[in-house]
């Protein structure tokens, strides 16, 4: 996992509420046994028309959205399935942060484990971000702030542990493996009971 310390990037806005995991990666792309390469499936049925050509009206396809690394999405982003293919696709495409006023639990947890910062901002800030697509933001993971073009700041909450993992680019398996003795002791105590 790549560390995520600071991120300077433009936003791309998908204002729709309840963007579900089937929207993010349609089920027919889930037959992969790999983690990589899912960028092409990201928002597939929005991005491409039935004949396979790009849909020029879709936000991600507009010229000004190319290279944007921050997705501002409508409320309740990532609802639905537990498929980690959703954050894999976002990361593979180049999205490193998702901002919304509400983000589904499993998606958020999956995203953070893949170096994609998924954080909730207040309703008012969310509305403002939705209304200002394509602006340049500076995200500071350690400080928990997003700097706006006018110099103003948005603060976001992030679990201390998840933050450290993002900053160090380490995953959580190593942490769990270091507790092998405690796990063995727990198992023994329970199986004796």
């Amino acid at each position: 996992m790549k560390p995520l310390v600071k991120l300077h990037s433009r936003t791309v806005v998908l204002p729709f509420e309840n963007i579900d995991t089937d929207r993010i990666v349609p089920a027919r792309f889930l037959t992969t046994t790999e983690r990589s390469g899912l960028g092409r499936a990201l928002f597939h049925d929005w991005r491409y028309r039935e004949d396979g050509s790009e849909n020029p009206d879709f936000a991600l396809n507009r010229p000004e959205a190319k290279g944007a690394g921050i997705l501002v999405a409508g409320r309740n982003f990532g609802c639905g399935s537990s498929r980690e293919h959703a954050p894999w696709a976002l990361a593979d495409y180049g999205i490193r942060a998702v901002l919304s006023s509400e983000i589904a639990d499993i998606f958020r947890s999956n995203a953070l484990k893949n170096g994609v910062l998924a954080v909730v901002v207040s309703e008012a800030e969310h509305r403002w971000l939705l209304d200002h697509p394509g602006i340049e933001l500076a995200v500071d993971v350690a400080a928990g702030t997003i700097e706006l073009p006018d110099g103003g700041h948005i603060r976001f909450e992030l679990d201390a542990f998840a933050r450290q993992c993002l900053l160090d680019g380490v995953d959580q398996l190593g942490f769990l493996l270091r507790h092998a003795e405690a796990i063995a002791a727990f198992e023994q105590a329970r199986e004796a009971a």
Binding site: K113, N114, D171, Q172, L173, L176, L177, H179
Partner: peptide, 17 residues
């Protein structure tokens, strides 16, 4: 439900964070 990374955590350690 959990993500695939967590599936790996549980396979390896029988635990989740």
């Amino acid at each position: 439900g959990i993500g695939t990374t967590e599936v790996g955590h549980v396979l390896a350690t029988q635990c989740l964070l």
